[in-house]
Structure formats: structure tokens, C-alpha cells
Design a binder for these strands. Structure first.
Lengths: 178, 178
DNA sequence: AGAAGATCACTTCGATGTTAGGGAGTCAAC
DNA sequence: GTTGACTCCCTAACATCGAAGTGATCTTCT
């Protein structure tokens, strides 16, 4: 009944599997007006007391440009506070605000509960297997992946001046009516 | 040297693991001016001859709103063609254009080559294990995941009228200079 | 036939991902 | 002390994500 990918595509499968898990938590976060990224950051901050932006980028898998906006919004919401490092005016310290701490205290148990339901459904074995395999891919002592050499080629000539094409409604049926 | 996530967070790990893989392919696609999504679509179209948007959404893990834009741009680039289904004017048929076919023929071997390098580095076992585990999560006959009940609560009162906060540069050091 | 309901592609809006580049601060060499 | 290289955070521009909703078309029931 459902379509299936015929060729093997790992990144694709990762995406699908991840969605299969995250979809059970998203409603909880949405309920509190938070996004996935915002929650990741709150969660990490609740454990590390204070972090610098580059650390958050690394831990939470968020690129620096994205993080800038995310932190600004979270600051607007009043769940975090940002301040400069006195010794190095380039650097920034991010902390949880009191309100942010409350929010974590309120949400964390719910996430935890949902996680248990998930664990229950998937089975302890599968969960353990998942952690194991993912760890191997991420931190694994596998040999460095070689990079193939790309053939010289001019990148696709984008035609930005053209007007966006649309799918015309075929006149067949309309014509038939008349 | 690198920070590590202390608490176990599966979606997080999925993201990181996926990035660990995709980063080896992204340069290839960028070289040809393609995005990941565009390539996924091209790849699938090269195997299925013709597809409807909802099928592409399902197979490629792309939401309908995103797909609309992606297909439009690909149409602009001339790598696909879109047409209506005569019997049902709501539906659309997406096909590969000749130029799109050429592009797939050109890129596919490169992706294939890089994939072999990856397989080589990670090891056949790990790759197999990955497919196995991911399949279990996605299609697995695991019990349905229960959903916890959310406590009644008004969502976070966003304050969109406020002006975006910035991190002030502390005056400490400047003051000390004087 | 006609109205209500279901489908499908598309649009809208706010937030995030990606890539490229800018501004300020730090450090070392001159 | 000034220049140049570097680092860190940030902005800009564009594409995608995720939720919600629209319009047109098809289906079903009356």
C-alpha cells in the first residue's frame, strides 16, 4: 500500500527513522510554543549551567547562522540570557533564565514520560541497538572516508530572470464540456 | 576535545549520524548546483519514470509545501516536466526531462563511487547493521507508541511586538582602559 | 441535478538550514 | 603602535521545514 524506496539510501532512511521518533515528541513541544531546536538548547543549558554559542552549535547540531536567530528569539521570550565575556569581548555566555528553568522543569517530565512509552513500544533491545550503531557512525574509529575527485564542470546555469513556470490546467476536459 | 551530549537523545543522534554521512555527498551535488532534495527527486524519477507529487513527498520525505517550490525550481532549471492528469485535473504527473536524465547519468556514478568509499571506511558490517536497524524503526512491527496526555496550559505568550534584543558589549573593559 | 464532504496541489507564515560574507575583538610580528 | 592574520558572532539571501489554510476538482449522498 505504501511506496518504498527501491535503491538503498542511508541519509534518506535516517531522515525517515528520525521522523518516526520525533513525531511523538513534537506535539509536546508545540504545546508549549517551543521548537525542537529551542528545546534542545534549553535541555542542554539545564545541564551545563552556561555555554558559549559555538558549544551549543556543536552539541545541538545547529549551524552558527541559525543559532543567532534562535537565541535571539529565545532571549525575546525571556527563557535565556546572554552576556559578554569580560576578558574577550568577542565571546558570549548563554544561560538559562529563571523562567527558562521553570519551563524545563515543567516539560522535562513529559518528554521523559513519552520517551518511556516509545521505549516500551520499540523494545529495549532495539533502542540499545540504535544507540550502539549511531555511536559507531558518529564517534566510530572507522577509517577516514576518502573523497572522490569531481570532474571539471561549470555548475548548472541557473536562469533566475525567467518567470516561475506553472502547471497549466489542460483544456481537454473544459473543452469537452462545451 | 569535542563536547559530548550527556543525556541520551535519539533524534539528536540521528541528526548527527546522518550529517556524518551526507557531508560526503553534499559537495558532489553542490558541484552540479543541486540540493539534496532535488537529487533525491531526480534519483527516484530516474527509476520510476513518472510520479505524482504526493508520491514524491512520501518517498523523498519532503512536505507538500516544500515540494511545490522545489518542483517549480526544477522545472525552471529544465530538469523535470510537469503535466496534468487528463482524467483528474487536480493531479499532476512529474517526469524527468531529457536534460534531467543526462544529469542523473552524469552524477549517479559519482555518488556511487563516493558511496563505495564510505562503505569501505565504515565497513560492510556497520552498513548492514545500519540498514537493518533503521528498517526496524521505520517499518518495524513494533507496537503503536502511546501518546501521553498533555496538561492544560496556555502556550507561551510570544511577545512579537518587542524589538529584537542584542547582546550589549560590556563596558567593563572599555571602562578599565580609562 | 445539487449539496456536502473528501482530495490534491498549492499558498501563506514563521522558523530553521546552508552558504557566503561582514564587523568587532584578540594576538603576534614588525 | 600599527599592521595583518585570525577568531567569534552575527547578518544577508535563499531554500526548506512545519503548521494551517485555500481553491479547484472529484466523489458521495440526498
Amino acid at each position: 500500500m505504501q511506496s518504498r524506496i527501491s535503491y538503498r539510501n542511508l541519509p534518506q532512511l535516517f531522515l525517515k527513522a528520525r521522523e518516526e521518533l520525533i513525531c511523538h515528541f513534537r506535539p509536546i513541544l508545540n504545546h508549549f510554543g517551543l521548537t525542537e531546536q529551542q528545546w534542545r538548547i534549553l535541555r542542554v543549558l539545564s545541564e551545563r549551567e552556561q555555554l558559549e554559542p559555538w558549544e551549543i552549535c556543536d552539541i545541538c547540531q545547529i549551524l552558527s547562522p541559525s543559532l543567532a536567530g534562535v537565541l535571539a528569539r529565545m532571549d525575546d521570550l525571556g527563557v535565556i540570557s546572554r552576556s559578554r565575556v569580560p576578558e574577550d569581548q568577542r565571546r558570549v555566555i548563554v544561560r538559562l533564565s529563571p523562567r527558562g528553568s521553570e519551563l524545563v522543569e515543567e516539560i522535562a517530565p513529559l518528554i521523559q514520560a513519552q520517551y518511556r512509552k516509545l521505549e516500551e513500544a520499540l523494545g529495549r533491545e532495539l533502542i540499545d541497538e540504535l544507540y550502539s550503531v549511531l555511536d559507531k557512525v558518529i564517534t566510530g574509529p572507522h577509517a577516514p572516508v576518502e573523497r572522490i575527485t569531481l570532474p571539471a564542470r561549470s555548475p548548472a546555469p541557473a536562469t533566475p530572470t525567467e518567470k516561475r513556470k506553472r502547471v497549466p490546467r489542460s483544456a481537454a476536459r473544459t473543452a469537452a464540456k462545451q
